[in-house]
Design a protein around this nucleic acid. Structure first.
Lengths: 145, 145
DNA sequence: CGAAACTATTTGATGTATCAAAGTTTCCGT
DNA sequence: ACGGAAACTTTGATACATCAAATAGTTTCG
């Protein structure tokens, strides 16, 4: 049956779509001589929006493993895009703040990222985007149950 | 605007949905004491359907990098699920064939994988699944353009 | 107070993603 | 037959995914 077949390949389609989008974004970063990965950008972006977040909160925001976040932060500190200082109230954690350099970077990337989304969603109606989001959220809920 | 926001998070939603689905599948593999990863299963499955395929064809079928496929095949050979013999016609490549053990594995996994898809798609109508597929394919096309 | 439970983070191990470069082997045009 | 283009695959390097276990600091409560 046709629908059987579509179900079979749907997850493949989802997989490809996110890969292609990541490629598109990564390509735009390279073209603009930005030496961060998409994932690193996500970390920076999350810290920008919630400056006093713990690493776990960041990880949850961008849907990544704590371990991955730890390692990405390490790279961002090396790149001088994040600054790590001791946390007075809780010595298990650190104060992590984005550097002025990172602030500039984020500002420059904002229109680029917006353009990427626009490119990827060209021709899709608003209600289709909403629908896509809703259906995927159903799948997510199903997988978590 | 609401739609702006939805666009912003859509790719996040896509990302999460594929991750959750992979978790669901991986979990089912562990529960059934199957010592292969989803990706390794995809490779085996592809070889099963196209026994005389080149590695590149396999890679294209499952949408993975040639390099990744090379390494996954190496692991599958170690696990005795794939057999590698020299190719008489073309010495650049190998004859890769799934072992009887792999055939059994694939047969056992078939209902499990089907159940996983059913679980993940519970409550979605056939036309919604089709729609999802179509919309994602549009995004893929946009990213490739 | 002090042990147990909990929280935040790191580390280790294994696997995949991605791009670039290299290694072979085959094919094709002259 | 020869040289270069093309094809199939591997290797290297770096980064992220995932799960489990280890660290280290904090809180709770008897």
């Amino acid at each position: 049956m046709a629908i059987e077949k579509t179900s079979d390949i749907l997850f493949n389609t989802i997989d490809i779509s996110i890969k292609k989008y990541r490629q598109l974004v990564q390509q735009s970063l390279v073209e603009n001589d930005v030496d961060v990965t998409i994932d690193q950008w996500m970390v920076l972006s999350a810290f920008n929006e919630t400056p006093d977040a713990t690493q776990q909160q960041i990880a949850n925001t961008i849907n990544k493993d704590y371990a991955s976040v730890t390692r990405m932060i390490e790279l961002l500190v090396q790149k001088k895009l994040l600054k790590r200082t001791t946390h007075n109230q809780d010595r298990r954690r650190f104060n992590l703040s984005i550097t002025p350099q990172a602030t500039t970077l984020l500002k420059n990337l904002q229109p680029i990222m917006k353009a990427n989304r626009k490119t990827a969603l060209k021709g899709l109606k608003n209600n289709e985007i909403d629908q896509l989001n809703d259906l995927l959220n159903k799948i997510i809920a199903n997988c978590e149950a």
